[in-house]
Nucleic acid binder design. Sequence first.
DNA 1: AAATCGGGGAT
DNA 2: ATCCCAGATTT
Length: 386
Amino acid sequence: MADTTIDFQEWTSHHVRRFRRRLLHWFSAHRRDLPWRKDRNPYAIWISEIMLQQTQVATVIPYFERFLARFPDVHALAQATEEDVLQVWAGLGYYRRARQLHTAAKQLVAQTNGRFPQRVDQLQQLPGIGRYTAAAIASQAFDVPAGILEANTQRVYARLLALEGDPRRGLAQRILWQFAERLHAVGEGKAGELNQGLMELGSLICSPTSPACTRCPVADQCSAQRNGDAAAYGTFSRRPRVTELHHAALLIRRGNRWLMRQNDAHQWWTGLWDFPRIELPAELATAAGRSSPSVKGRHQPLPADVAAKLQELAHASYTLSCRPHHLVGRLTHSVTRFRIRLQCIVAEGHRIRLAHLPGQWKWVEPSAHSLPFTSTARRITQQILT
DNA sequence: AAATCGGGGAT
DNA sequence: ATCCCAGATTT
């Protein structure tokens, strides 16, 4: 590696040992009873780590339980269809994770009969596994002494070192990865416990805005704490501004089924099913909702000019012939830096032939979602179509 | 280095 | 309302 090595001054072997000893002791008393901590099954640890990418523990738990029940081992996952996998994943977000998980499972079965490699560099070859996830799996499943750096440990290390600035920026990342490895360099084993303890500390004690330094087992080894204000370190610089978008979902019924389409590879929610959506120009967005404020359960007729414009847009986007006529609800949701205001509009379909529409379309019963629905499609079926 | 990719918990 | 979350990958 071309990086210059940083000596971390006070972090001598002795200092690291003391830190590890106290952290491991604290962790043994405070570790949460999380479902992926029942044993050291690399498959379960792998699934949990992928689900936990940019996703909070509380959100992951029910998805993890359902996923393991449905796909108990790597062979079951490899044999599933991608749609099966997405169906269990639906609602969790970042759907590329699910597709890559499925691809990796098939690779593992084909290449090693489903056995997991133990080395970080080997794990990192698998799709969806980067440096953090490879180190997390190797350390937790096999006690490989590999440092980790993620949301919790970025903050914890930055505070231990009193590192100024955004811990995600380039130079800081190099320093923090080196520090992560330094904590494993004393050769005392328990790599998995150490890494989980570090994250648990970041989650339970060393929180973003109000770190509980009085309860911290390693406070006296923390430079930020000694400087008097731990919360001043390890924080992020401002995020990009939120951009507001306006979409319309067209709700088109035939009998007790509704027209839905599958998002393709160059769209949001790739592979998931949703009602056909149209992006609305700003002037139309305000016009569509101008009739009156939203009243729950009340259907509002669309102004004629708005209905005509929506009809045009539906045809331009999908060659879909329909006559939009009522606004039946509004939802707001977000995709990364966008906030989408979604108007749900019932339309009358006109001689719709699925085979003539671009991409994958189906008439779907909303109650029986065996298909992977987007979260908004689920909300629409539950709140608006009932 | 910056942009992309979701959805919800916590404050 | 806003910030943030056991990141990886592409541009």
